[in-house]
């Protein structure tokens, strides 16, 4: 599931190339690296702007010198942003952590059944699940708001936990199903069945101990997407009880935008997912590939 480094063709295996070819290969290499580095710079431009602006005092944010380093470095913007965002930051954790764990557990059970303890029509059920992950959620928002209100689920954190669990089921099921069908041989399950092992025992003693990699991929993927969600948050919460994306949008969205504070805020709001990405990037890609249905 992860992008693997290839076995590179061994250079020494070919006969020594003529000098002209050598020179051309050298040019190609230089062009290749020049392009790669150029694109690194392009991709990192917004990051430079974020950092530089976040350390500028309000007086320096104007047009002139917009791309320059701050003349007076200050933490004022970071302090403002932290004040504006910190309550919602904790709410984001309160939503993302339980929603990720519960969805991952459900995904694991579902993935097991749909790959290794199948029933007639399992593929159809799976496809109906998958469709749920591609829909534009606007198509469920109106009755969803009504329903969560009707059953007395408080707006904000509790509602968002439930909603992210439910709409997280398809992707979590997809990742686990793909993982189990490639890593756990059917014979192993069949042998268990012959021994008379029940389904839950098979899951607990055979499947669960092998599931750690899929749990890591799923938890990272689910945490990142719940943390970054804005659509459910704007429909089902407000600035007083919503996650950090809502608070950041409010901080950045005014008519007179305080750019240094909102950029410091953008960095604060991105910090948890970036840390996860930097530390566990390899696993992040796993979720990415699963999302395209390519296993």
């Amino acid at each position: 599931m992860t992008v693997e480094t290839p076995a590179r063709p061994v250079a020494g295996a070919t006969p020594p190339p003529r000098r002209r070819v050598d020179a051309r290969a050298g040019t190609a290499r230089t062009v290749r690296y020049a392009l790669l580095i150029f694109f690194v710079i392009v991709v990192l431009i917004p990051v430079y702007v974020l950092f530089v602006t976040s350390f500028k005092p309000a007086s320096e944010v104007g047009i002139r010198g917009a791309w320059a380093l701050p003349q007076d470095w200050t933490f004022d913007a970071w302090r403002n942003a932290w004040e504006a965002l910190s309550p919602s930051l904790w709410r984001s954790f309160a939503i993302a952590i339980p929603a990720s764990i519960v969805a991952a557990v459900l995904g694991s059970l579902n993935g097991f059944v749909l790959s290794r303890w199948r029933f007639p029509g399992a593929d159809l059920v799976f496809m109906l699940f998958l469709f749920g992950m591609f829909i534009p959620y606007q198509a469920v928002m109106i009755p969803l708001r009504q329903l969560t209100g009707d059953i007395g689920l408080p707006s904000g954190v509790p509602t968002l936990i439930v909603v992210h669990i439910v709409y997280g089921i398809p992707i979590c099921t997809l990742i686990f199903r793909g993982f189990y069908s490639t890593t756990i041989p059917n014979e192993l399950i069949e042998a268990g069945k012959v021994d008379g092992s029940g389904m839950l025992r098979t899951y607990r003693s055979l499947i669960l101990p092998l599931s750690a990699p899929a749990f890591v991929v799923t938890l990272i993927w689910q945490f990142t997407s719940v943390w970054n969600d804005f659509l459910f948050a704007i429909f089902l919460s407000n600035t007083r009880n919503g996650p950090v994306t809502i608070a950041l949008n409010a901080l950045a969205g005014g008519q007179l935008t305080d750019y240094s504070s909102s950029m410091a805020g953008a960095l604060i709001a991105s910090f948890p997912t970036l840390v996860v990405y930097i530390l566990l990037g390899r696993w992040f890609i796993g979720g990415l590939m699963a999302g395209s249905l390519k296993s």
């Binding site: 991709v43 917004p46 702007v49 974020l50 990142t224 943390w227 970054n228 969600d229 804005f230 994306t245 950041l248 949008n249 950045a252 909102s262 950029m263 805020g265 953008a266 960095l267 709001a269 991105s270 997912t273 970036l274 996860v276 990405y277 992040f284 990415l288």
Partner: peptide
């Protein structure tokens, strides 16, 4: 890496 960032955060910059 930009994939790990929310549209709301990158939208600011």
């Amino acid at each position: 890496f930009p994939m790990a960032v929310s549209f709301v955060a990158s939208g600011v910059v």
